[in-house]
């Protein structure tokens, strides 16, 4: 089963258009959504959760159409974390537990306290005294504690230090040990996504550039650094983006289309995205 499937998803605002987004996130996998600010990542997530109405297209989440009446109930199984965590400032983690117990029908108190322990979050400290890392961890603990099958996170790791980010990535990694659990997350820190994602979807100016297995992307693309004369020998169709300086050319290429005699370096996901986005300008 697919955790998320979108087909021809469109949304037009006055100054922005999200154009026909097709995503497939198979169950048990982690998908990273990347793209520049304003590319349409958050809009895509809002359309998936049906908090914003789409103009066209179809979304199926955990096998349920998100416009059907069953979707309301299904939301119990989806944990959503946005880039800012909002809880009433005077509440502590214990209070949050009580609120959530009355919000989610399948709230798992023990699970929540387990996560508080795992994240070393204080029980009695008020939310207003939390650091940014603690706030995010609390929001993620909540998202994980109502028997969620799907986590949707919009920039949940931004503004956090590398140690905390890595801890959080480990949580997502562990969460998907269960093959019925899936994660969709967006981040500007592409190296984070490269670390844990099975799939990478790249949205650029409201259009989906690719939605592909991460390892296939890494196998498909490579970076070459050559003199201009050597570069001219490479077939144009193999070049997906380039940077020309007075001293030579750096280019993103399709490995298979370049002769074996040329040294091809590994391209990171960040390289792939930057080159492709620049080429589009």
């Amino acid at each position: 089963m697919n955790a998320i499937e979108t087909k021809g998803l469109c949304k037009t605002y006055d100054d922005f258009k999200l154009d026909s987004i097709d995503l497939v996130l198979p169950s048990g996998c982690i998908m990273g959504l990347v793209g520049e600010n304003g590319a349409g990542k958050s809009t895509t997530m809002e359309l998936i959760m049906n908090t914003v109405k789409s103009d066209a297209g179809q979304v199926t989440v955990l096998g349920t159409d998100n416009k059907s009446s069953d979707f309301r109930k299904l939301k119990e199984e989806i944990g959503v974390v946005l880039d800012e965590a909002y809880f009433p400032l005077v509440l502590n983690a214990k209070d949050v537990n009580i609120v959530m117990k009355n919000t989610y029908g399948n709230w798992d108190e023990n699970c929540f306290y387990d996560y508080l322990g795992k994240f070393s979050l204080p029980i009695k400290k008020q939310f207003k005294d939390f650091s940014r890392g603690m706030k995010m961890k609390l929001a993620i603990a909540v998202a994980l504690s109502h028997n969620s099958k799907l986590l949707i996170l919009d920039e949940a790791t931004s503004g956090l230090d590398p140690m905390v980010r890595d801890e959080i990535l480990d949580i997502f990694n562990d969460f998907t040990r269960d093959e019925t659990h899936s994660v969709l997350l967006s981040s500007h820190i592409v190296s984070d996504l490269e670390k844990i994602c099975d799939y990478i979807a790249f949205i650029h100016k409201g259009k989906l550039v690719f939605c592909e297995e991460k390892d296939r992307l890494l196998d498909k693309y490579g970076v070459v650094r050559l003199s201009k004369a050597d570069f001219d020998v490479i077939p144009r169709s193999a070049v997906k983006g380039k940077k020309v300086t007075d001293y030579g050319v750096e280019a993103l290429v399709i490995r298979d289309a370049v002769s074996g005699a040329i040294a091809i370096e590994r391209a990171s996901i960040e390289d792939i995205i930057l080159y492709i986005a620049k080429e589009d300008k």
Partner: peptide, 14 residues
């Protein structure tokens, strides 16, 4: 497959 992938922190599909 899942345990190995998660332990090595590599893709399940791979």
């Amino acid at each position: 497959i899942r345990v190995l992938a998660k332990d090595l922190r590599i893709s399940v599909i791979t």
